[in-house]
Design a protein around this nucleic acid. Structure first.
Lengths: 162, 162
DNA sequence: GAGATTATGTCAGTACTATTGACGTAATTT
DNA sequence: AAATTACGTCAATAGTACTGACATAATCTC
């Protein structure tokens, strides 16, 4: 059953193929904007957690601020994201999606969501929590705090018009 | 339930986090060899499908031959992979892992497999086929032929010593 | 209040992975 | 004999990431 040497090659490989195709959907859309996968990730988390700070974003993405700089600057310059001075701490920059940014984030998420729904249907899995539990268990325990399934909101207000 | 706008943000995000950590295990080992993720993928598929040709490998990885060239050359120079002239068509180069290559491929797969087993246990999923079916359904239908769960073998002979 | 620390931004240099385009060679097919 | 195929290679470019260094403004600490 391809568990020779006690290694689960089947799921290792399936995970590679699944992720490859999972990211291919938004990649095509992003190309139209001259954006890459890095822009997608930033836009996604800014939309998911409106008001998060630069430091929090770096922590979630696990990249350096120098890597974020270019991508974030482009998203700001193209009016997809805005920065607001932190209310408590004025050194902080709270990141918010604009209406334009939220629209793009949604457009990118739509085909991925469709793929997920289709996969759940095709595989005959009625309990989505099964997949959620498995994926969450794949994440490093000390990093699970970053995941707030359900609590984060994407329907929050954007800051495109003031 | 974070399915606002009809979008399944929960699984989208979990998939990102899960894959991020899934690849972090081998990344650390690869760094010791001066290799990157690209080397891992090549080594994995050469080990999984010993004897596959360059063209077949390009098709699985979905990259160009120019991208493959550098990575493959390094794996050959460091004695992880060997090329044999195709028996039927002498233009082809069949790729095989050496004993050294197979050992590295195994070392890279081990922590990933451990993570998968732990995740299955933690999430209380007793039927591994559930996850396999879901992941396979996430792959583009026209590309599922590339997946031969169970048929490919990693315990095949390597070509390190002749 | 002075000094240390924090949050962010930016400059410079480098590495890895990927791309397109072009050209060459040997082997196979027509 | 000519066309096609499989592979290799050279050159230029792009996207994403890194380390290290330095600057500025705001906050915290003594």
């Amino acid at each position: 059953m391809s568990v020779e040497d006690g290694i689960d090659f089947a799921i290792i490989e399936l995970f590679f193929f699944a992720y490859r195709d999972f990211t291919s959907d938004p990649d095509q859309i992003l190309a139209d904007y001259g954006f890459g996968r890095a822009h997608h990730r930033v836009l996604h988390f800014v939309s998911r957690r409106p008001g998060l700070t630069v430091a929090e974003l770096l922590d979630v993405l696990k990249i350096t601020k120098q890597s974020l700089a270019r991508v974030l600057k482009q998203l700001i310059d193209t009016d997809h994201v805005v920065q607001l001075q932190g209310p408590r701490d004025r050194r902080q920059r709270e990141l918010y999606p604009t209406a334009k940014g939220r629209a793009l984030a949604l457009a990118l998420a739509r085909p991925q969501s469709r793929r997920i729904h289709a996969a759940l249907g095709d595989s005959g899995i009625t309990e989505r929590t099964l997949v959620e539990r498995f994926l969450e268990a794949m994440v490093n325990p000390e990093l699970r705090a970053q995941i707030d399934v359900g609590s984060a909101k994407m329907s929050g207000k954007s800051h495109g018009e003031h």
